[in-house]
Computed example of a mutant assay.
Amino acid sequence: MDLEKLKAQLMSRIDTDDLLEVKKVERYIELLKLDSQCDEVLARDGSTVTIENGKQRFVKSHPAMTDKTKINTQLIALEKSFNFVDEGLPPAASTVEGKSKEEYSEDDLI
């Protein structure tokens, strides 16, 4: 993933005079970098680790798996908190099969 492009895209969608929103974008990018590092560790080590304690031996999930879950939770929270400005963006499509909310009925549901 090209994080610089993503950062530029996010920055273009926020009020860059709002320092809190700028900080959210920076935090979001840093979390994505951490997530990528976890991916590299998991690719190298695998998703499980074997623990040996004396004669005991057991397998547990890699600590990076827990970290990825925490990072994902933070990313989702940040995504929900962004205050995007609508300038220059096309309106979000809120249609089902080309119909607006007013045009579809219960019969359209499966």
Rank of each mutant, 00 (worst) to 15 (best):
Q9E: 11
L32Y: 04
E103N: 06
G46C: 08
E102W: 01
K55F: 12
F82P: 00
G54C: 11
K70P: 00
D2G: 09
R27D: 08
G54P: 12
R44N: 13
E40M: 12
D2K: 13
I110H: 08
Q9F: 02
K99L: 15
V96P: 00
V49L: 04
E103Y: 01
S100P: 01
V85H: 10
I71T: 02
L31E: 04
F58Y: 15
K70V: 15
R27L: 14
D107R: 04
L20H: 06
A43Q: 13
E103A: 15
A64L: 12
A92Q: 09
E103Q: 13
D35W: 13
R57V: 09
H62N: 09
S105F: 12
D108M: 06
K80Y: 04
G54S: 07
T48A: 02
E97M: 07
R57M: 11
K5L: 10
T50G: 01
T73Y: 01
P91Q: 14
I110D: 14
T66Q: 14
N53V: 10
I71C: 03
K33T: 07
E87Q: 10
M1P: 14
T66N: 13
K5T: 11
K23M: 05
T48R: 13
D15Y: 03
T95Y: 05
R57L: 09
M1V: 14
Y104F: 15
K99H: 03
V59F: 07
T95I: 07
T73M: 02
P90E: 07
S94A: 09
S100T: 13
I14E: 07
D107F: 04
S100D: 14
G46M: 08
